[in-house]
Lab assay of single mutants.
Amino acid sequence: MASQGTKRSYEQMETDGERQNATEIRASVGKMIGGIGRFYIQMCTELKLSDYEGRLIQNSLTIERMVLSAFDERRNKYLEEHPSAGKDPKKTGGPIYRRVNGKWMRELILYDKEEIRRIWRQANNGDDATAGLTHMMIWHSNLNDATYQRTRALVRTGMDPRMCSLMQGSTLPRRSGAAGAAVKGVGTMVMELVRMIKRGINDRNFWRGENGRKTRIAYERMCNILKGKFQTAAQKAMMDQVRESRNPGNAEFEDLTFLARSALILRGSVAHKSCLPACVYGPAVASGYDFEREGYSLVGIDPFRLLQNSQVYSLIRPNENPAHKSQLVWMACHSAAFEDLRVLSFIKGTKVLPRGKLSTRGVQIASNENMETMESSTLELRSRYWAIRTRSGGNTNQQRASAGQISIQPTFSVQRNLPFDRTTIMAAFNGNTEGRTSDMRTEIIRMMESARPEDVSFQGRGVFELSDEKAASPIVPSFDMSNEGSYFFGDNAEEYDN
Protein backbone atom coordinates (compact mmCIF):
# COMPACT_ATOMS: atom_id res chain seq x y z
CA MET A 1 0.00 0.00 0.00
CA ALA A 2 1.22 3.50 -0.70
CA SER A 3 1.77 5.20 2.64
CA GLN A 4 -1.43 6.86 3.76
CA GLY A 5 0.22 9.96 5.19
CA THR A 6 -2.49 12.54 5.63
CA LYS A 7 -4.79 10.72 3.22
CA ARG A 8 -7.74 8.85 4.63
CA SER A 9 -7.88 5.17 3.70
CA TYR A 10 -10.54 4.28 1.18
CA GLU A 11 -12.59 2.49 3.73
CA GLN A 12 -12.80 5.83 5.53
CA MET A 13 -13.77 7.62 2.33
CA GLU A 14 -16.23 4.84 1.68
CA THR A 15 -17.95 5.37 5.02
CA ASP A 16 -17.45 9.13 5.48
CA GLY A 17 -15.41 8.19 8.55
CA GLU A 18 -13.12 10.40 10.50
CA ARG A 19 -9.90 8.68 11.56
CA GLN A 20 -10.80 5.17 12.60
CA ASN A 21 -8.71 2.18 13.52
CA ALA A 22 -8.76 -0.97 11.39
CA THR A 23 -11.48 -2.66 13.45
CA GLU A 24 -13.77 0.38 13.27
CA ILE A 25 -13.19 0.67 9.54
CA ARG A 26 -14.03 -3.00 9.03
CA ALA A 27 -17.19 -2.54 11.07
CA SER A 28 -18.36 0.56 9.20
CA VAL A 29 -17.70 -1.02 5.80
CA GLY A 30 -19.55 -4.11 7.06
CA LYS A 31 -22.45 -1.92 8.11
CA MET A 32 -22.61 -0.42 4.63
CA ILE A 33 -22.58 -3.87 2.96
CA GLY A 34 -25.22 -5.19 5.38
CA GLY A 35 -27.46 -2.24 4.50
CA ILE A 36 -27.22 -3.01 0.78
CA GLY A 37 -28.02 -6.66 1.53
CA ARG A 38 -31.07 -5.84 3.67
CA PHE A 39 -32.37 -3.44 1.03
CA TYR A 40 -31.98 -6.10 -1.66
CA ILE A 41 -33.85 -8.73 0.38
CA GLN A 42 -36.70 -6.27 0.95
CA MET A 43 -36.92 -5.40 -2.77
CA CYS A 44 -37.03 -9.09 -3.71
CA THR A 45 -39.91 -9.53 -1.25
CA GLU A 46 -41.74 -6.50 -2.67
CA LEU A 47 -41.33 -7.83 -6.21
CA LYS A 48 -42.15 -11.41 -5.16
CA LEU A 49 -38.97 -12.74 -6.76
CA SER A 50 -38.07 -16.39 -6.31
CA ASP A 51 -34.66 -17.22 -4.85
CA TYR A 52 -33.32 -17.94 -8.35
CA GLU A 53 -34.77 -14.71 -9.79
CA GLY A 54 -33.28 -12.76 -6.89
CA ARG A 55 -29.83 -14.14 -7.72
CA LEU A 56 -30.11 -13.08 -11.36
CA ILE A 57 -27.53 -10.37 -11.99
CA GLN A 58 -29.81 -8.52 -14.45
CA ASN A 59 -32.49 -8.15 -11.73
CA SER A 60 -29.79 -6.96 -9.33
CA LEU A 61 -28.68 -4.26 -11.79
CA THR A 62 -32.25 -3.00 -12.24
CA ILE A 63 -32.84 -2.79 -8.48
CA GLU A 64 -29.47 -1.07 -7.92
CA ARG A 65 -30.25 1.41 -10.67
CA MET A 66 -33.67 2.20 -9.20
CA VAL A 67 -32.26 3.18 -5.81
CA LEU A 68 -29.47 5.23 -7.40
CA SER A 69 -32.05 7.05 -9.50
CA ALA A 70 -34.31 7.60 -6.47
CA PHE A 71 -31.47 9.38 -4.66
CA ASP A 72 -30.17 11.39 -7.63
CA GLU A 73 -31.30 14.77 -6.32
CA ARG A 74 -29.94 16.93 -9.12
CA ARG A 75 -31.52 14.82 -11.82
CA ASN A 76 -34.80 14.56 -9.91
CA LYS A 77 -34.90 18.35 -9.59
CA TYR A 78 -34.07 18.75 -13.28
CA LEU A 79 -36.80 16.30 -14.30
CA GLU A 80 -39.36 18.17 -12.23
CA GLU A 81 -38.38 21.52 -13.77
CA HIS A 82 -38.18 20.18 -17.35
CA PRO A 83 -41.06 17.75 -17.69
CA SER A 84 -40.57 15.48 -20.70
CA ALA A 85 -43.24 13.43 -22.39
CA GLY A 86 -43.76 9.99 -20.89
CA LYS A 87 -41.28 10.42 -18.03
CA ASP A 88 -42.77 10.67 -14.57
CA PRO A 89 -40.12 12.47 -12.49
CA LYS A 90 -41.48 10.87 -9.30
CA LYS A 91 -41.18 7.30 -10.54
CA THR A 92 -38.34 4.93 -11.30
CA GLY A 93 -38.21 1.42 -12.69
CA GLY A 94 -36.72 -0.99 -15.16
CA PRO A 95 -36.88 -4.54 -16.48
CA ILE A 96 -37.38 -7.43 -14.05
CA TYR A 97 -36.90 -10.94 -15.42
CA ARG A 98 -39.07 -13.82 -14.22
CA ARG A 99 -39.08 -17.51 -15.02
CA VAL A 100 -42.57 -18.39 -16.27
CA ASN A 101 -43.42 -21.88 -17.57
CA GLY A 102 -39.81 -22.67 -18.33
CA LYS A 103 -39.19 -19.38 -20.19
CA TRP A 104 -37.69 -16.06 -19.17
CA MET A 105 -40.17 -13.16 -19.33
CA ARG A 106 -39.36 -9.46 -19.12
CA GLU A 107 -41.64 -7.29 -16.99
CA LEU A 108 -41.23 -3.52 -16.80
CA ILE A 109 -41.85 -2.31 -13.27
CA LEU A 110 -42.47 1.21 -11.99
CA TYR A 111 -42.12 2.41 -8.39
CA ASP A 112 -42.48 5.71 -6.57
CA LYS A 113 -39.00 7.06 -5.86
CA GLU A 114 -40.29 8.05 -2.43
CA GLU A 115 -41.18 4.41 -1.72
CA ILE A 116 -37.72 3.19 -2.84
CA ARG A 117 -36.07 5.82 -0.63
CA ARG A 118 -38.19 4.65 2.30
CA ILE A 119 -37.17 1.00 1.79
CA TRP A 120 -33.48 1.98 1.44
CA ARG A 121 -33.49 4.11 4.59
CA GLN A 122 -35.32 1.42 6.53
CA ALA A 123 -32.63 -1.10 5.53
CA ASN A 124 -29.96 1.37 6.66
CA ASN A 125 -31.27 2.26 10.14
CA GLY A 126 -32.99 5.39 8.88
CA ASP A 127 -29.86 6.89 7.27
CA ASP A 128 -29.46 7.99 3.65
CA ALA A 129 -26.37 5.73 3.68
CA THR A 130 -24.66 7.54 0.80
CA ALA A 131 -21.62 5.26 1.18
CA GLY A 132 -23.75 2.29 0.13
CA LEU A 133 -25.06 4.21 -2.87
CA THR A 134 -21.51 5.12 -3.93
CA HIS A 135 -20.51 1.48 -3.53
CA MET A 136 -23.16 0.46 -6.06
CA MET A 137 -22.05 3.23 -8.43
CA ILE A 138 -18.49 1.89 -8.29
CA TRP A 139 -19.74 -1.64 -9.02
CA HIS A 140 -21.58 -0.31 -12.11
CA SER A 141 -18.49 1.65 -13.12
CA ASN A 142 -16.24 -1.42 -12.77
CA LEU A 143 -18.68 -3.43 -14.87
CA ASN A 144 -18.59 -0.75 -17.59
CA ASP A 145 -14.79 -0.68 -17.46
CA ALA A 146 -14.62 -4.43 -18.08
CA THR A 147 -17.30 -4.38 -20.78
CA TYR A 148 -16.50 -1.37 -22.96
CA GLN A 149 -13.39 0.26 -24.33
CA ARG A 150 -14.19 3.95 -24.43
CA THR A 151 -12.63 4.73 -27.78
CA ARG A 152 -14.99 7.56 -28.74
CA ALA A 153 -14.76 9.37 -25.42
CA LEU A 154 -10.95 9.22 -25.58
CA VAL A 155 -10.77 10.47 -29.15
CA ARG A 156 -13.24 13.30 -28.47
CA THR A 157 -11.04 14.63 -25.69
CA GLY A 158 -7.87 14.47 -27.76
CA MET A 159 -6.47 11.26 -26.32
CA ASP A 160 -5.44 7.99 -27.93
CA PRO A 161 -7.77 4.94 -27.59
CA ARG A 162 -4.74 2.84 -26.69
CA MET A 163 -4.56 4.82 -23.44
CA CYS A 164 -7.63 2.98 -22.15
CA SER A 165 -5.73 1.70 -19.10
CA LEU A 166 -6.02 5.23 -17.67
CA MET A 167 -9.80 5.32 -17.96
CA GLN A 168 -10.95 3.55 -14.81
CA GLY A 169 -14.16 5.08 -13.46
CA SER A 170 -14.89 7.07 -16.63
CA THR A 171 -18.64 6.37 -16.31
CA LEU A 172 -18.91 7.23 -12.60
CA PRO A 173 -21.39 10.00 -11.91
CA ARG A 174 -19.97 13.24 -10.50
CA ARG A 175 -21.84 12.76 -7.26
CA SER A 176 -19.76 9.75 -6.29
CA GLY A 177 -17.79 11.69 -3.65
CA ALA A 178 -14.34 10.94 -2.25
CA ALA A 179 -14.67 7.18 -2.68
CA GLY A 180 -15.49 7.75 -6.35
CA ALA A 181 -12.58 10.17 -6.84
CA ALA A 182 -10.18 7.59 -5.38
CA VAL A 183 -11.02 4.98 -8.01
CA LYS A 184 -10.88 7.31 -11.02
CA GLY A 185 -7.96 6.78 -13.35
CA VAL A 186 -5.62 9.56 -14.51
CA GLY A 187 -7.25 9.58 -17.96
CA THR A 188 -10.71 9.94 -16.44
CA MET A 189 -9.65 13.02 -14.47
CA VAL A 190 -7.90 14.48 -17.53
CA MET A 191 -11.03 13.90 -19.61
CA GLU A 192 -13.23 15.69 -17.06
CA LEU A 193 -10.84 18.65 -16.97
CA VAL A 194 -10.51 18.79 -20.77
CA ARG A 195 -14.29 18.94 -21.09
CA MET A 196 -14.34 21.93 -18.74
CA ILE A 197 -11.53 23.67 -20.61
CA LYS A 198 -13.27 23.12 -23.96
CA ARG A 199 -16.50 24.59 -22.61
CA GLY A 200 -14.56 27.58 -21.33
CA ILE A 201 -13.03 28.12 -24.76
CA ASN A 202 -16.45 27.95 -26.48
CA ASP A 203 -18.48 29.84 -23.90
CA ARG A 204 -17.10 33.18 -22.75
CA ASN A 205 -19.21 33.24 -19.60
CA PHE A 206 -18.22 29.80 -18.37
CA TRP A 207 -15.65 31.14 -15.88
CA ARG A 208 -17.53 34.39 -15.12
CA GLY A 209 -19.99 35.59 -12.54
CA GLU A 210 -21.33 33.68 -9.54
CA ASN A 211 -21.67 30.46 -11.53
CA GLY A 212 -18.16 30.86 -12.90
CA ARG A 213 -16.83 31.11 -9.37
CA LYS A 214 -18.38 27.74 -8.54
CA THR A 215 -17.02 26.33 -11.78
CA ARG A 216 -13.56 27.59 -10.87
CA ILE A 217 -13.71 25.93 -7.45
CA ALA A 218 -14.75 22.65 -9.08
CA TYR A 219 -11.92 22.99 -11.61
CA GLU A 220 -9.30 23.52 -8.91
CA ARG A 221 -10.69 20.67 -6.84
CA MET A 222 -10.44 18.30 -9.80
CA CYS A 223 -6.89 19.50 -10.47
CA ASN A 224 -5.97 18.70 -6.87
CA ILE A 225 -7.50 15.23 -7.10
CA LEU A 226 -5.48 14.55 -10.25
CA LYS A 227 -2.32 16.02 -8.71
CA GLY A 228 -2.75 13.64 -5.77
CA LYS A 229 -2.73 10.68 -8.13
CA PHE A 230 0.69 11.50 -9.60
CA GLN A 231 3.74 10.10 -7.87
CA THR A 232 6.55 12.28 -9.23
CA ALA A 233 7.39 15.87 -8.34
CA ALA A 234 7.52 17.01 -11.98
CA GLN A 235 4.04 15.70 -12.73
CA LYS A 236 2.69 17.33 -9.56
CA ALA A 237 4.37 20.63 -10.45
CA MET A 238 2.79 20.57 -13.89
CA MET A 239 -0.62 20.07 -12.25
CA ASP A 240 0.01 23.16 -10.10
CA GLN A 241 0.56 25.12 -13.33
CA VAL A 242 -2.67 23.81 -14.82
CA ARG A 243 -4.60 24.60 -11.65
CA GLU A 244 -3.27 28.15 -11.24
CA SER A 245 -3.93 29.18 -14.83
CA ARG A 246 -5.88 32.48 -15.00
CA ASN A 247 -7.88 31.43 -18.00
CA PRO A 248 -7.60 27.72 -18.80
CA GLY A 249 -7.24 27.18 -22.54
CA ASN A 250 -5.13 25.40 -25.13
CA ALA A 251 -1.91 25.47 -23.11
CA GLU A 252 -3.64 23.64 -20.26
CA PHE A 253 -5.21 21.18 -22.69
CA GLU A 254 -1.73 20.41 -24.07
CA ASP A 255 -0.28 20.01 -20.58
CA LEU A 256 -3.07 17.65 -19.54
CA THR A 257 -2.79 15.39 -22.58
CA PHE A 258 0.99 15.35 -22.07
CA LEU A 259 0.45 14.29 -18.44
CA ALA A 260 -2.05 11.62 -19.44
CA ARG A 261 0.50 10.12 -21.82
CA SER A 262 3.22 10.29 -19.21
CA ALA A 263 1.00 8.30 -16.84
CA LEU A 264 1.31 5.27 -19.13
CA ILE A 265 4.84 4.89 -17.82
CA LEU A 266 4.92 7.03 -14.66
CA ARG A 267 1.66 5.56 -13.43
CA GLY A 268 -0.62 7.36 -11.00
CA SER A 269 -2.11 5.94 -7.80
CA VAL A 270 -5.60 4.69 -8.45
CA ALA A 271 -7.57 2.83 -5.79
CA HIS A 272 -9.10 -0.56 -6.51
CA LYS A 273 -11.96 -2.06 -4.53
CA SER A 274 -13.95 -5.20 -5.03
CA CYS A 275 -17.56 -3.99 -5.22
CA LEU A 276 -20.01 -6.84 -5.73
CA PRO A 277 -23.59 -6.78 -7.05
CA ALA A 278 -26.38 -6.41 -4.48
CA CYS A 279 -27.56 -9.96 -5.27
CA VAL A 280 -24.38 -11.25 -3.61
CA TYR A 281 -24.84 -9.26 -0.40
CA GLY A 282 -28.58 -10.00 -0.08
CA PRO A 283 -28.43 -13.80 0.18
CA ALA A 284 -25.41 -13.55 2.53
CA VAL A 285 -27.44 -11.36 4.91
CA ALA A 286 -30.47 -13.63 4.48
CA SER A 287 -28.38 -16.63 5.50
CA GLY A 288 -27.69 -14.88 8.81
CA TYR A 289 -24.23 -13.44 8.17
CA ASP A 290 -23.73 -10.24 10.18
CA PHE A 291 -21.40 -8.04 8.13
CA GLU A 292 -21.14 -5.30 10.74
CA ARG A 293 -20.25 -7.68 13.55
CA GLU A 294 -17.81 -9.74 11.46
CA GLY A 295 -16.32 -6.69 9.74
CA TYR A 296 -15.55 -6.43 6.02
CA SER A 297 -12.85 -4.99 3.79
CA LEU A 298 -13.09 -4.16 0.09
CA VAL A 299 -9.38 -4.67 -0.48
CA GLY A 300 -8.60 -7.92 1.32
CA ILE A 301 -9.82 -11.51 1.36
CA ASP A 302 -13.48 -10.77 2.19
CA PRO A 303 -14.88 -10.24 -1.33
CA PHE A 304 -13.03 -13.34 -2.58
CA ARG A 305 -14.44 -15.40 0.25
CA LEU A 306 -17.94 -14.06 -0.34
CA LEU A 307 -17.76 -14.94 -4.05
CA GLN A 308 -16.43 -18.44 -3.21
CA ASN A 309 -19.73 -19.10 -1.41
CA SER A 310 -22.17 -17.24 -3.65
CA GLN A 311 -24.45 -18.45 -6.39
CA VAL A 312 -25.12 -15.78 -9.04
CA TYR A 313 -26.96 -16.37 -12.32
CA SER A 314 -27.05 -14.45 -15.58
CA LEU A 315 -29.21 -14.41 -18.68
CA ILE A 316 -27.24 -15.70 -21.66
CA ARG A 317 -27.94 -14.80 -25.30
CA PRO A 318 -28.00 -17.61 -27.88
CA ASN A 319 -24.38 -17.40 -29.06
CA GLU A 320 -22.70 -16.25 -25.88
CA ASN A 321 -20.24 -18.34 -23.92
CA PRO A 322 -21.18 -18.60 -20.20
CA ALA A 323 -17.51 -18.96 -19.20
CA HIS A 324 -16.71 -15.72 -21.04
CA LYS A 325 -19.65 -13.94 -19.41
CA SER A 326 -18.30 -15.18 -16.07
CA GLN A 327 -14.84 -13.79 -16.79
CA LEU A 328 -16.32 -10.38 -17.61
CA VAL A 329 -18.26 -10.22 -14.33
CA TRP A 330 -15.35 -11.66 -12.33
CA MET A 331 -13.07 -8.90 -13.63
CA ALA A 332 -15.71 -6.29 -12.81
CA CYS A 333 -16.14 -7.65 -9.28
CA HIS A 334 -12.44 -7.15 -8.62
CA SER A 335 -12.05 -3.85 -10.45
CA ALA A 336 -9.51 -5.56 -12.68
CA ALA A 337 -10.32 -4.33 -16.20
CA PHE A 338 -6.85 -2.83 -16.68
CA GLU A 339 -4.78 -5.40 -14.81
CA ASP A 340 -2.20 -7.62 -16.46
CA LEU A 341 -3.90 -10.77 -17.77
CA ARG A 342 -0.98 -12.91 -16.59
CA VAL A 343 -1.68 -11.87 -13.00
CA LEU A 344 -5.42 -12.35 -13.40
CA SER A 345 -5.05 -15.83 -14.89
CA PHE A 346 -2.86 -16.84 -11.97
CA ILE A 347 -5.31 -15.56 -9.34
CA LYS A 348 -8.44 -16.84 -11.06
CA GLY A 349 -6.87 -20.22 -11.78
CA THR A 350 -8.14 -20.29 -15.37
CA LYS A 351 -6.85 -18.47 -18.43
CA VAL A 352 -8.18 -14.92 -18.63
CA LEU A 353 -8.72 -13.86 -22.23
CA PRO A 354 -8.48 -10.41 -23.84
CA ARG A 355 -11.81 -8.64 -24.41
CA GLY A 356 -11.76 -9.16 -28.18
CA LYS A 357 -11.60 -12.94 -27.75
CA LEU A 358 -14.65 -13.12 -25.47
CA SER A 359 -17.89 -14.36 -27.00
CA THR A 360 -20.08 -12.23 -24.82
CA ARG A 361 -21.78 -8.88 -24.98
CA GLY A 362 -22.59 -6.71 -21.98
CA VAL A 363 -24.52 -8.01 -18.98
CA GLN A 364 -27.51 -5.74 -19.52
CA ILE A 365 -30.23 -6.85 -21.91
CA ALA A 366 -31.69 -4.16 -24.17
CA SER A 367 -35.47 -3.70 -24.18
CA ASN A 368 -35.74 -4.74 -27.82
CA GLU A 369 -33.91 -8.05 -27.42
CA ASN A 370 -35.90 -11.21 -27.95
CA MET A 371 -36.58 -13.03 -24.66
CA GLU A 372 -37.78 -16.21 -26.41
CA THR A 373 -34.25 -17.42 -27.00
CA MET A 374 -32.79 -16.37 -23.61
CA GLU A 375 -31.27 -19.02 -21.40
CA SER A 376 -29.68 -18.52 -18.01
CA SER A 377 -26.58 -19.99 -16.47
CA THR A 378 -24.48 -19.86 -13.33
CA LEU A 379 -21.67 -17.29 -13.26
CA GLU A 380 -18.41 -18.86 -12.12
CA LEU A 381 -16.99 -16.13 -9.87
CA ARG A 382 -14.66 -18.20 -7.71
CA SER A 383 -10.88 -17.80 -7.62
CA ARG A 384 -7.90 -20.06 -7.01
CA TYR A 385 -6.03 -17.49 -4.88
CA TRP A 386 -6.70 -14.07 -3.44
CA ALA A 387 -4.47 -11.00 -3.43
CA ILE A 388 -4.48 -7.57 -1.84
CA ARG A 389 -5.81 -4.73 -3.98
CA THR A 390 -3.38 -1.87 -4.51
CA ARG A 391 -3.81 1.88 -4.27
CA SER A 392 -0.56 2.63 -6.00
CA GLY A 393 0.44 2.44 -9.64
CA GLY A 394 3.26 0.09 -8.76
CA ASN A 395 6.72 1.46 -9.20
CA THR A 396 7.52 3.08 -12.48
CA ASN A 397 9.27 0.26 -14.31
CA GLN A 398 7.74 -1.48 -17.25
CA GLN A 399 7.65 -4.05 -19.97
CA ARG A 400 6.34 -4.55 -23.50
CA ALA A 401 2.56 -4.46 -23.90
CA SER A 402 0.37 -5.06 -26.89
CA ALA A 403 -0.93 -3.19 -29.89
CA GLY A 404 -4.42 -2.49 -28.58
CA GLN A 405 -3.54 -1.26 -25.12
CA ILE A 406 -0.10 0.15 -24.44
CA SER A 407 0.07 -0.01 -20.68
CA ILE A 408 -1.72 -1.46 -17.68
CA GLN A 409 -2.98 -0.18 -14.33
CA PRO A 410 -2.29 -2.76 -11.63
CA THR A 411 -5.18 -3.93 -9.42
CA PHE A 412 -3.41 -6.48 -7.26
CA SER A 413 -0.34 -6.02 -5.15
CA VAL A 414 1.56 -8.92 -6.69
CA GLN A 415 5.23 -9.05 -7.73
CA ARG A 416 5.73 -8.76 -11.50
CA ASN A 417 7.14 -6.51 -14.18
CA LEU A 418 4.62 -4.00 -15.53
CA PRO A 419 4.08 -4.18 -19.28
CA PHE A 420 4.10 -1.16 -21.55
CA ASP A 421 5.15 -0.39 -25.06
CA ARG A 422 7.84 2.25 -24.71
CA THR A 423 8.39 2.82 -28.42
CA THR A 424 4.72 3.53 -29.04
CA ILE A 425 4.36 5.72 -25.97
CA MET A 426 7.51 7.74 -26.58
CA ALA A 427 6.64 8.23 -30.25
CA ALA A 428 3.63 10.22 -29.08
CA PHE A 429 5.92 12.77 -27.43
CA ASN A 430 6.87 15.00 -30.30
CA GLY A 431 9.69 16.51 -28.28
CA ASN A 432 7.67 19.66 -27.71
CA THR A 433 9.26 20.91 -24.51
CA GLU A 434 8.96 24.64 -24.98
CA GLY A 435 6.63 26.91 -23.05
CA ARG A 436 6.23 27.52 -19.36
CA THR A 437 6.28 23.84 -18.44
CA SER A 438 9.40 23.03 -20.45
CA ASP A 439 11.66 22.05 -17.56
CA MET A 440 8.98 19.77 -16.10
CA ARG A 441 8.31 18.20 -19.49
CA THR A 442 12.01 17.56 -20.01
CA GLU A 443 12.27 15.97 -16.58
CA ILE A 444 9.19 13.76 -17.15
CA ILE A 445 10.48 12.56 -20.53
CA ARG A 446 13.86 11.80 -18.95
CA MET A 447 12.20 9.66 -16.26
CA MET A 448 10.13 7.84 -18.86
CA GLU A 449 13.16 7.07 -20.96
CA SER A 450 15.06 5.63 -18.05
CA ALA A 451 12.24 3.32 -16.96
CA ARG A 452 13.39 -0.26 -17.53
CA PRO A 453 10.94 -2.92 -18.73
CA GLU A 454 12.52 -5.75 -16.80
CA ASP A 455 12.38 -4.09 -13.38
CA VAL A 456 10.05 -5.72 -10.90
CA SER A 457 7.15 -4.00 -9.14
CA PHE A 458 5.53 -4.93 -5.81
CA GLN A 459 8.74 -6.68 -4.79
CA GLY A 460 8.06 -9.73 -2.63
CA ARG A 461 4.27 -9.36 -2.80
CA GLY A 462 2.40 -12.52 -3.64
CA VAL A 463 -1.01 -14.13 -3.78
CA PHE A 464 -2.51 -16.16 -0.95
CA GLU A 465 -4.40 -19.41 -0.53
CA LEU A 466 -8.06 -18.82 0.30
CA SER A 467 -7.45 -20.56 3.63
CA ASP A 468 -4.76 -17.98 4.49
CA GLU A 469 -6.95 -15.12 5.70
CA LYS A 470 -4.17 -13.45 7.66
CA ALA A 471 -2.04 -13.27 4.50
CA ALA A 472 0.75 -15.06 6.33
CA SER A 473 2.39 -17.02 3.49
CA PRO A 474 2.62 -15.14 0.20
CA ILE A 475 3.07 -17.23 -2.94
CA VAL A 476 5.11 -15.15 -5.37
CA PRO A 477 4.14 -16.21 -8.88
CA SER A 478 6.59 -16.28 -11.75
CA PHE A 479 5.31 -14.96 -15.06
CA ASP A 480 6.37 -15.50 -18.61
CA MET A 481 7.89 -12.10 -19.35
CA SER A 482 7.25 -12.35 -23.06
CA ASN A 483 3.58 -13.09 -22.76
CA GLU A 484 0.80 -10.79 -23.86
CA GLY A 485 -0.64 -8.87 -20.93
CA SER A 486 -3.35 -6.48 -22.09
CA TYR A 487 -7.11 -6.99 -21.97
CA PHE A 488 -8.21 -4.56 -24.67
CA PHE A 489 -5.61 -5.92 -27.09
CA GLY A 490 -6.43 -5.25 -30.77
CA ASP A 491 -9.91 -4.86 -29.57
CA ASN A 492 -13.45 -4.85 -30.85
CA ALA A 493 -15.38 -4.33 -27.62
CA GLU A 494 -18.65 -2.46 -28.05
CA GLU A 495 -18.67 1.24 -27.36
CA TYR A 496 -20.14 2.45 -24.07
CA ASP A 497 -23.32 4.41 -24.76
CA ASN A 498 -24.95 6.07 -21.83
Rank of each mutant, 00 (worst) to 15 (best):
S84Q: 14
D439G: 10
T350W: 07
S69E: 05
S176E: 12
G158W: 03
E254A: 09
P410F: 02
T423K: 04
Q20C: 14
R355L: 05
G268P: 15
I301R: 08
E339H: 05
G300L: 01
T437Y: 00
I388N: 04
D88Y: 11
L133I: 08
E53R: 00
S84Y: 01
G362M: 09
G187H: 02
S274V: 02
G200P: 02
S486H: 09
E254W: 02
L341M: 13
I36Y: 06
I225S: 13
M239Y: 01
A337W: 07
T411L: 02
Y296S: 14
R305Y: 14
G394P: 04
M13L: 05
A278D: 12
E53C: 03
R317Q: 10
R342F: 02
V329I: 15
F304D: 03
T423R: 10
G5K: 04
V183R: 01
S326T: 12
D480L: 05
I316F: 07
N247H: 01
G86L: 13
I388D: 03
N101W: 08
M196N: 05
S359T: 15
G462I: 03
Q409S: 12
L418I: 14
Q122V: 12
D203W: 04
A234G: 15
A337F: 02
N247S: 14
R446C: 10
I41R: 07
A179I: 01
I425Q: 07
S297L: 03
P83I: 05
L466C: 01
S482G: 11
S335E: 01
A233I: 15
P95S: 12
R199S: 12
V183W: 03
F489L: 10
D127W: 12
T411D: 09
S274K: 02
E372A: 13
T373W: 01
L298Q: 13
M43H: 01
A428C: 12
P419E: 07
F489Y: 14
Q149C: 10
L379P: 05
T147V: 15
R246G: 06
T134C: 15
E454D: 13
E244Y: 01
C279P: 02
A233F: 01
S176W: 01
D491M: 14
R162D: 06
A2H: 04
V312L: 11
G460P: 00
A286V: 12
Q364W: 09
G485K: 02
K91Y: 05
A182Q: 02
R65F: 12
R293V: 15
L68W: 08
E494W: 10
I347C: 11
V456L: 14
W207V: 10
N144G: 15
T134N: 03
K48R: 13
T23H: 08
G126M: 12
R317A: 03
T62N: 13
V343A: 12
D491V: 09
N483G: 05
T171N: 15
L154G: 00
A471M: 05
P322F: 06
N211P: 06
A403V: 04
P89S: 08
G102N: 09
R195I: 11
S359D: 13
M167D: 05
I25S: 03
A332E: 10
N202E: 00
R65K: 14
L143P: 02
G35A: 09
S467C: 15
S60V: 06
N250A: 10
P303A: 12
M191V: 09
L133S: 03
V414G: 01
V352D: 01
V270C: 05
L307S: 05
R416P: 00
F346S: 08
V67G: 12
W330R: 06
S450G: 11
S473A: 04
T373G: 08
L259H: 02
A366F: 07
E192A: 08
F420E: 00
L49H: 10
A332Q: 00
L266Q: 13
N205W: 07
G169K: 03
A85D: 05
G17F: 00
E469Y: 07
N250H: 01
A451W: 03
V29I: 14
I408C: 14
G356F: 06
A472K: 05
S314T: 05
E192P: 03
Y496S: 05
Y219S: 11
T15L: 11
N76Q: 12
M136Q: 11
N224S: 15
K87I: 12
H272K: 03
E252F: 05
T15V: 09
P89A: 15
Q415M: 04
G435T: 10
E114G: 12
T437C: 09
D160S: 02
Y313E: 04
Q12P: 09
P322S: 15
M448L: 14
V285W: 09
G393M: 04
D439H: 07
K87R: 14
A234H: 04
F253N: 04
M448Y: 05
I388Q: 04
S345G: 08
I96K: 10
W207H: 06
S28Y: 14
G93P: 03
I197C: 02
L68T: 09
D160N: 08
V285M: 05
